[in-house]
Design a protein around this nucleic acid. Structure first.
Lengths: 252, 252
DNA sequence: ATGCAGCAATGAGGCAGATCATTCTACGAA
DNA sequence: TTCGTAGAATGATCTGCCTCATTGCTGCAT
C-alpha cells in the first residue's frame, strides 16, 4: 500500500553502510542525511528470509521494526477456521512496524527471497524521538496507509470481482512505476491464491476474471507472474466503478 | 473506530473554555493541561450541525480539522454509480483530520444533531509541532485507526453477514462502554442502510440477520435504534468466526 | 382519528461468486 | 524423455446474499 514517491537523494560516500541499498529512495530512512543514516543503521542489523519463510506471526511480541530492502512480503490474518485475509503486500523500501500494540497484528511472510533491515523497537523509538523529521515522516506514512486502507474498504465492501482486479492491476503497476520503469508490464510476485485473499475473492474467480480481461484484450498474460496492460483506459473505467461500463466492457 | 480508553483528568478551573466538555476524556486534547488546552481552544471555534447536515464532501479542500464533542457522524465514500460505502462512524471525542492530502478523502455527515470543535489546519499543525506529546498522541491515534481498519478489511473480505453483524454489535457496545455505562444496552444511532453500507451488506440483509439474532435469543430489539445483548458469549463466538458454530448457533 | 411519509421487516426469485471437480501447463527430478 | 508435482485454468453446480416488491410499524401533520 505505501505509495510514497521516490525521493531525490544525494549519493552516499564510498564505504557507507547503506551504499547500494536499492530501497533507500523509497524508505523512511531516505530522508536522513549521511551521518544520521549511518547512525541509524548501526542501531540495527540485516536479515535474509528464504521464500515462504515467516518473519513473525500474528500475536508475536512486536519487539522489532523492519524496512524491506529486497523482495516482497505478504501480511495476512487468519480466522480460527482457516479463512485467510491478506492485509497487504510489501515492496522494497516499505516500512513494517507501525503499531500501537506490543503484539503483531498479522503474520508477515516472504513471497520470494527477501532482505530486511531490522531494529529493536526501543532503540528505534528513541532514535525517532531525537529526529523530528523521522517522526513526521512516520506519521505521514501512517496517515497514507490509513487512506489507502480506507480505499480498500470500499473495494471489499462494494465492488465487483472485475472492478477489484482492474484496480489491483493498476495499483500494482503504479507502485512499480515508483521504483523504476513506467511501462505497461506488471509483475505479480504473489500467486493467485494470495491475490484472491487480498481482494476477498477465491483463486478460481481471480483466474476467471483475468481470463475475461485477456479475452477482452485489456491485458496480455506473459507467464503466470507477469502481465502487460493493453488498454489502460478501459481498466481505469472498470476500476473507478462506473455503472453500465461494467456490463458492456466485459461481456463482449 | 477510535477506541482510545477514557483518561483520568484533572478537573478544569471554573470559567475554562472547555468546562463541561463531554468529550475531553476521550479526545486527543485530553492529554493537555489546563493552560495548553485553553491555548489550543483559542485557535479554533465551535460548530453545530443539524441532523443530516454535511460537514464536508469528499474532494473538498481539507482546510480544517475537527474534534466531535457531541453527537455522531458517518464518514462515507460514493462510487460514480451511486454505490456507497460507510468508512466509519464518529462518536464524541473522536478526532477528524488525519490526512496526508489537502483534500478530504470522504464525506462527513451528521447522523443526529452534532457539535464540533474546529481548527484551521495550519494553526493546528504548528500547535502540535510545538507540543510533542500531542504529536505522539496523533501518531498513536493514526496507528490505532490503521489497526482497526485492517480488522475491518478482514471483516469485509472474509466474513459472513451474521459474523459481520455480531462483530458490529459487540464493537458498538465496547465503544459505548468507554464513554460510560458498561451495560448490555447498545445504541444504534445510525439507520439500517448506514449499517449495511458500513458492513458491505444490504439493508434487507441487516434486517434479516437482526431478526435471526432476535429469534435465536442473542439480542432483544428495544425499538429500532436500541438493542440489548442477551447472549454475549454466543455473539462473541460468531464474531470470532469459528466454523461450525455458525451453522448450529443460528439455524436453531 | 385519519392520512401520509419514512423506515424497517419480510417474501419471492435471480445472480455473482463460491465450491467442488477436472484438465492443462510449467518445471524440476529421476 | 518421462514422470511427478504444484499451481493455474476451466467446467458444473450450488448458495448466500442481492434485488425487487409488498407489507407493517411509528410518528407527525392535517
Amino acid at each position: 500500500m505505501p505509495g510514497s514517491l521516490a525521493r531525490h537523494l544525494d549519493p552516499l560516500p564510498t564505504g557507507h553502510a547503506c551504499q547500494g541499498c536499492e530501497a533507500r529512495s523509497r524508505a523512511v530512512c531516505g530522508i536522513l542525511d549521511c551521518e544520521n543514516l549511518a547512525q541509524l543503521k548501526k542501531l540495527g542489523s540485516t536479515l535474509r528470509l528464504a521464500a515462504g519463510q515467516t518473519l513473525f506471526h500474528e500475536g508475536d511480541p512486536a519487539g522489532r521494526v523492519f524496512t524491506l530492502t529486497h523482495g516482497h512480503l505478504k501480511l495476512y490474518k487468519l480466522l480460527p477456521d482457516g479463512r485467510r485475509h491478506v492485509v497487504g503486500f510489501l515492496d522494497p523500501g516499505d516500512f513494517l512496524g507501525i503499531s500501537v500494540d506490543d503484539e503483531h497484528a498479522f503474520t508477515a511472510e516472504a513471497i520470494g527471497d527477501a532482505d530486511l533491515c531490522c531494529f529493536p523497537r526501543g532503540r528505534f523509538d528513541s532514535f525517532i524521538s531525537d529526529h523530528p523529521s523521522m517522526e513526521r515522516e512516520l506519521y505521514q506514512l501512517a496517515a497514507h496507509e490509513l487512506a489507502a486502507t480506507q480505499l480498500q474498504l470500499v473495494l471489499l465492501g462494494r465492488r465487483t470481482a472485475a472492478e477489484r482486479l482492474a484496480n489491483f492491476i493498476l495499483l500494482q503497476a503504479e507502485r512499480q512505476a515508483t521504483r523504476g520503469s513506467a511501462t505497461n508490464i506488471v509483475d505479480l510476485p504473489m500467486n493467485r491464491a494470495d491475490i484472491a485473499d487480498y481482494l476477498g475473492l477465491t483463486k478460481e474467480t481471480v483466474s476467471r476474471v483475468l481470463s475475461t480481461f485477456r479475452a477482452a484484450r485489456l491485458i496480455r498474460l506473459k507467464g503466470v507472474y507477469e502481465l502487460e496492460i493493453l488498454d489502460r483506459r478501459l481498466l481505469e473505467q472498470l476500476s473507478e466503478g462506473g455503472a453500465h461500463e461494467r456490463a458492456t466492457l466485459i461481456s463482449a
